[in-house]
């Protein structure tokens, strides 16, 4: 769905003074303390920063899994901050793809069924879903593993399945929270290579990472500290 009203086609995401405050007893944690930034369409951005700086909080917010305590979040021209739970689910279903550090595959489902999951919620019939799952598994190099369970796969393979699943709904934006965090360097690099390819094919990618080497592959690096953006580096 292309929003014609959005004049600045390059801007996919805009955050305006976004706060996320967690109330811990009588103590307040400012996970995000007034973030304002934009992410452009087709970009590849790495979010970096020390542990606890608010990276995951920001990514969850961008992924419509969470809501800002204060501030505005405009996703492809829509002000997401005002939407209800169903509308946020709908956004995640149609426009976003998630990749997690711990893969988050459903263990009792086969690789194919895991990849088909978003299509199931999109209401696809089983034949077209299966077709698409095969196509995606092929794309991430796991055509032979379709009937395996996630537990029978290596970490790298599991992350490939997760990527295939994130791609199933053909999202404009891919969000990855430390996608290589649980992988060895070589495998991590392969996964990153895959993400870079996807970015070249036009996906907007926002990725949280600790590792500077990995971050170097992104075209934009966003450094966070104490819930705020410190610096933004662009190639």
């Amino acid at each position: 769905m292309i929003n014609q009203a959005d004049k600045n086609e390059d801007l996919v995401i805009r955050l305006e003074d976004v706060h996320k405050i967690y109330q811990m007893g009588d103590q307040q944690v400012n996970a995000l303390a007034g973030v304002s930034t934009t992410f452009s369409a087709g970009g590849f951005c790495a979010i970096m920063g020390p542990s606890g700086s608010g990276k995951s909080t920001m990514l969850n917010l961008l992924g419509c899994l969470d809501r800002a305590t204060r501030g505005r979040y405009i996703l492809e021209g829509t002000d997401v901050s005002t939407l209800d739970d169903d509308a946020l689910s709908e956004l995640r279903l149609r426009h976003l793809g998630f990749i997690f550090q711990s893969f988050n595959l459903i263990p009792q489902l086969t690789v194919q069924r895991n990849i088909e999951l978003p299509l199931y919620y999109l209401g696809w019939d089983s034949e077209s879903s299966a077709e698409r799952a095969v196509e995606l598994a092929d794309k991430v190099g796991l055509a032979e593993r379709l009937n395996h369970r996630p537990t029978e796969l290596s970490g790298g393979q599991m992350q490939r399945v997760a990527i295939a699943r994130a791609l199933a709904n053909d999202p404009r934006i891919l969000l990855a929270d430390e996608p290589t965090g649980n992988l060895d360097t070589a495998t991590g690099e392969q996964i990153l290579q895959l993400l870079a390819e996807l970015n070249e094919q036009g996906k907007t990618i926002i990725m949280v990472t600790h590792e500077p080497d990995i971050a170097m592959l992104a075209r934009t690096r966003l450094h966070m500290r104490d819930g705020l953006i410190e610096t933004i580096e662009e190639d």
Partner: peptide, 16 residues
């Protein structure tokens, strides 16, 4: 719980 979280992240609505 985790499965529910995954389904929700993917876009499943509450009623689903």
């Amino acid at each position: 719980t985790r499965e529910i979280g995954i389904r929700r992240a993917i876009g499943a609505k509450r009623r689903q």
